[in-house]
């Protein structure tokens, strides 16, 4: 029948008139965001689920409650015993993400092919030794749809850290200064992204990034990246207004490859951990002096 909008038009000729008053094209790009996935949702959130799907959801919910109670018990114990963390050993690596058969489900691999925006391929598998191998093929060909300018990325991201009963939470890394990655790459440079989403839609895409350089070859490498070197970017754009990474707000980590070289890639991962190095005094590696108009690099504006 009639949509609410159509009835409104019939009732009010004024509203109808207002459609013709525009003197310039309406602004298509606004700051408003539809959701934390920025329009890349894999399902339609407004679609009504069928009865069968609803039943499945209720069933899953009850199962989640059971799981949640168990997790909550553990959390209570941990808080009682370990909070606050009193003894942080210097130069001791605490493994946060270990890559083996059981933990690979915690990672989500995305590529430009998923949304018809490119032709790259990637997957995360178990290696012969039981580590994780992020491999595939990068392809920078742009689909000829008239909209896309560039393409060619692959990305693996850990699922958001959640406490019991699916509560969204952040990692607690008090005093830690370094991110430690043990990997075996292929000579390409990867991007390490630490996601620190904020409350409002402008800060949902806040990401602190740094480069993971790999040597290539048959040898493993242990890379220590100081947290002070991570710089803020949002939706792939480095921001003018920089600040040190809020370590208590990290919710997930991602490794991505966007180096624009067509061809196969391979990154074998053992673990990603954190470390406290008392000799590391640097707070932020980038200049923090005040700049007029907040344009990076301009001193006298």
């Amino acid at each position: 029948m009639f949509s609410p909008r159509a009835t409104l038009r019939l009732i009010s000729p004024l509203s109808q008139l207002s459609h013709h008053i525009h003197t310039s094209p309406t602004l298509s790009a606004t700051f408003w965001e539809s959701g934390p996935k920025f329009g890349y949702e894999s399902f339609d959130p407004e679609k009504e689920p069928s009865m069968k799907e609803k039943f499945q959801m209720y069933k899953g919910g009850i199962h989640d409650i059971k799981k949640g109670v168990k997790m909550w018990k553990e959390e209570c114990k941990e808080t009682f015993l370990m909070d606050p963390e009193l003894s942080i050993q210097p130069n001791q690596i605490d493994v946060v993400w270990k890559f083996d058969e059981t933990t690979l489900d915690n990672w989500v691999v995305t590529r430009d092919k998923d949304h018809g925006e490119g032709f790259s391929d990637a997957n995360l598998q178990v290696s012969t030794l039981g580590h994780g191998v992020f491999s595939g093929e990068l392809n920078t060909n742009v689909p000829q749809d008239g909209m896309l300018k560039k393409s060619g990325y692959v990305n693996m991201r850990s699922k958001r850290y959640r406490k019991s009963f699916e509560r969204e939470a952040c990692y607690e890394w008090p005093m830690r200064t370094h991110l430690v990655i043990r990997c075996r790459g292929d000579g390409r440079s990867y991007m390490v992204n630490l996601h620190t989403p904020g409350e409002f839609d402008l800060s949902w895409a806040d990401t602190y990034s740094y480069i993971l350089f790999t040597r290539g070859g048959p040898y493993w490498q242990v890379t220590r990246i100081p947290f002070s070197k991570f710089f803020l970017s949002s939706k792939g754009r480095v921001q003018d207004k920089q600040e040190p990474i809020p370590i208590e707000k990290v919710s997930s980590i991602a490794l991505s490859l966007v180096d624009k070289n067509n061809g196969p890639f391979q990154l074998e991962l053992d673990y990603i951990g954190i470390e406290y190095d008392p000799s590391h005094q640097e707070e932020f590696a980038y200049e923090m002096y005040l700049m007029e108009n907040e344009v990076r690099g301009i001193v006298h504006w």
Binding site: D186, G187, G216, G217, P218, N261, G263, P264, Q266
Partner: peptide
């Protein structure tokens, strides 16, 4: 195995 050096790559053996 393949190693990448910027935009070039080469195959090596061990």
């Amino acid at each position: 195995f393949r190693i990448w050096l910027r935009d070039q790559s080469i195959v090596y053996y061990i």
